[in-house]
């Protein structure tokens, strides 16, 4: 499979990928390397992983990172209660300490969390490590072993090797700079906001019933809006929401009803200051340029 086929397959499934992204994905798949995706919020980084899982018809295992995420939530944990009960149960039998230990520190007593789960699947899943920049550096260091060797060390049990190598996708919004060690283990692609024609293609793929003229207006408006000085630029999901809203209201032309247009902007602008920054006049100026 070449990268062009991958690109067109993704497009078929409803994800329009840039050449850079498609190539990075293709290489990540063929070289079996993790892929680090960076870019603003709402450019479709997470969506890539979902689509990839869909294309390969395999499981998507998702690990959402947050501050304070630790190994016991992300990798594995011992099932303490079960261990305790089994210790009680064997107390009457005459077993040596070594035998008891071997029993309670075996895989049966291990609770698998996403990362361990991902490397112990028989069919390689897509592992999405979302917003890695939110996790702390300590966790990033844990990840290194998994990403480079696809193995996990458990002190009581030894090293667990991957049954199959998962396809790993990491995403980052750049709230914190990631370590070079992590970057070096990954392929890299920076996902930008799509340009006009790409975004139009996305809209037509996702909401095919929208009239072509209106679609052009909608996408043009969102593109112009991103150039304004906003706190949170509207992402692709917002654009789709808004388009569905506008189309659902039965609007045929954006410049028809200024009041209604202004009211629908709640789909795009998500903070109070952004709403204040785009008053009716600005909306009309942006909409006027399209007409």
């Amino acid at each position: 499979m070449s990268w062009k086929t991958l690109q067109s397959d993704l497009a078929e499934a409803g994800y329009i990928a840039s050449a850079e992204l498609a190539m990075a994905l293709h290489l990540a798949l063929t070289l079996e390397r993790p892929l680090l995706l960076e870019g603003a919020a709402g450019v479709g980084k997470t969506e890539v992983a979902k689509m990839l899982a869909l294309l390969q018809s395999t499981r998507l295992i998702r690990l959402q990172c947050y501050e304070g995420l630790d190994a016991s939530t992300a990798i594995y944990e011992w099932n303490y209660q079960r261990q305790l009960l089994s210790v009680r149960a064997v107390a009457e039998k005459d077993l040596s300490t070594q035998e008891v230990e071997d029993q309670i520190f075996s895989e049966r007593y291990l609770l698998k969390r996403p990362l361990l789960e991902a490397i112990s699947q028989s069919q390689p899943p897509v592992l999405l490590i979302d917003e890695i920049d939110r996790a702390d550096e300590e966790f990033e260091a844990y990840l290194l072993e998994i990403l480079s060797d696809f193995q996990i060390s458990i002190p009581e049990l030894g090293t667990i090797d991957a049954v199959s190598k998962p396809m790993v996708i990491l995403t980052s919004n750049g709230t914190r700079d990631l370590s070079d060690a992590l970057r070096r283990r990954c392929l890299y692609s920076f996902v930008e906001y799509p340009d006009l024609s790409t975004e139009l293609a996305i809209l037509q793929k996702r909401l095919p019933h929208i009239d072509k003229l209106l679609a052009e207006q909608l996408v043009g408006f969102v593109q112009a809006l991103r150039k304004e000085d906003l706190q949170k630029n509207p992402g692709i999901a917002e654009m789709l929401d808004w388009s569905a809203a506008v189309a659902g209201l039965g609007v045929a032309n954006l410049s028809d009803d200024p009041v209604q247009l202004q009211a629908t902007l709640v789909c795009l602008l998500k903070t109070q200051s952004d709403i204040a920054a785009i008053p009716v006049e600005v909306t009309q100026r942006l909409a006027g340029k399209l007409a």
Binding site: E20, A24, E38, R183, R184, C186, L187, Y188, F190
Partner: peptide, 8 residues
């Protein structure tokens, strides 16, 4: 690009 460029 995918292999060598590691940051934005």
């Amino acid at each position: 690009k995918a292999v060598c460029a590691g940051r934005s």
